[in-house]
Design a binder for these strands. Structure first.
Lengths: 195, 195
DNA sequence: TTTTAATGTAATGAA
DNA sequence: TTCATTACATTAAT
């Protein structure tokens, strides 16, 4: 086992490209990588000051405290900075903010945290909601805005949730198709070898 | 919950316009939609001939038996049927299948089970592998594809394992921070009560 | 029992 | 929109 902790690497190659998960081409530059590429590039820009809120679930914070500083600091970091220092600072800020919530407004500690992380709390669809969505998906995997609005109303969900659900569902279908295609090819290939 | 499956809708409005995600204007025509708009458009294309199997560890089954029936029944079910009946049937099939394995090929009954359950056998990282992973994690908890490939090569692991490990490691870090923060809140709260 | 590898999927951003 | 990747909840192996 190589005991070199991979931290002594160096030289060049500071690209941040992400490989397509599941593809096996491009072993290009399998040589070494720089410290900079590990600590990587934090070229995270801040597209702050957007006009309309892209994160409606954060707005609930507005009537809970009069300290915009807290929201900004919590929202501004797109990438949740999980490494040591920044991460802790982040958490502390969230904590301070939490003091401004009343008991009743405080849904749960975890939920607040994810809010201030700037990420929408994960929606848990009910079984019946899934059933309806699936039944619609079977006949139309590309519902227009009208269908989505109708679904949103009938299922008591945001239209955005519907849209995202169909996007993810299409991705899942595509994945499963890829999978079955692969198996077919593989089986054909191996059976050709055997006969 | 509305039990009407939304398939009985009707009349007009068959546009397929996509709303800008995140905007909340234009509630135009929030009325109903036609069957045609649901059934519509099935313009499914298939980007076929994609490369990699999503469950490569199942492929090893090929050289262990000449009974594709077993593989098919095992693979075809996405959710590995964890409830009573199906699960038991599954186990019996695995047992029968196992007769075809030679001693050397038979790793362990449990391992076979997890294969046929469609779940990857749990990877047991060595201590030295963990050490390297941890040392990299300390400086960068979001390694790019280049770093992951490098790690995979040096540690003799699949790149997928590296990726999953970092995902779980990030989740663990988050959890521990949550917990310590929670303790801090509780302590602050109680000490405020006491003074 | 606890820890953690593996899985499924909602959410996000880039192209 | 797709696509890759993330967070997060859950399952299950150790």
């Amino acid at each position: 086992m190589a005991s070199t902790p991979l931290l002594s690497a160096n030289t060049a190659a500071s690209q941040n490209c992400q490989k397509a998960s599941g593809s096996m081409e491009n072993k290009a530059t399998h040589s070494s990588f720089s410290i900079e590429s590990i600590l990587g590039l934090e070229q995270k820009d801040e597209g702050i000051l957007a006009a309309k809120s892209q994160r409606p679930w954060i707005d609930t914070c507005n009537n809970l405290d009069g300290n915009p500083q807290l929201q900004l600091s919590a929202i501004s970091c797109e990438r949740p900075l999980l490494h040591a220092n920044n991460y802790l600072m982040q958490e502390e800020r969230v904590l301070k903010c939490e003091k401004y919530f009343s008991i009743t407004e405080k849904v749960s500690y975890k939920r607040e945290l994810s809010w201030y992380r700037g990420r929408r709390p994960r929606t848990a669809f009910t079984r019946s909601q899934i059933e309806v969505l699936e039944s619609v998906f079977r006949v139309n995997s590309y519902p227009g805005i009208d269908v989505r609005e109708e679904l949103a109303h009938k299922l008591d969900l945001d239209e955005d949730r519907i849209q995202i659900w169909f996007q993810n569902r299409r991705a899942k279908l595509k994945r499963s198709h890829r999978e079955s295609q692969f198996l077919m090819v593989k089986n054909t290939f191996t059976s050709n070898l055997l006969e």
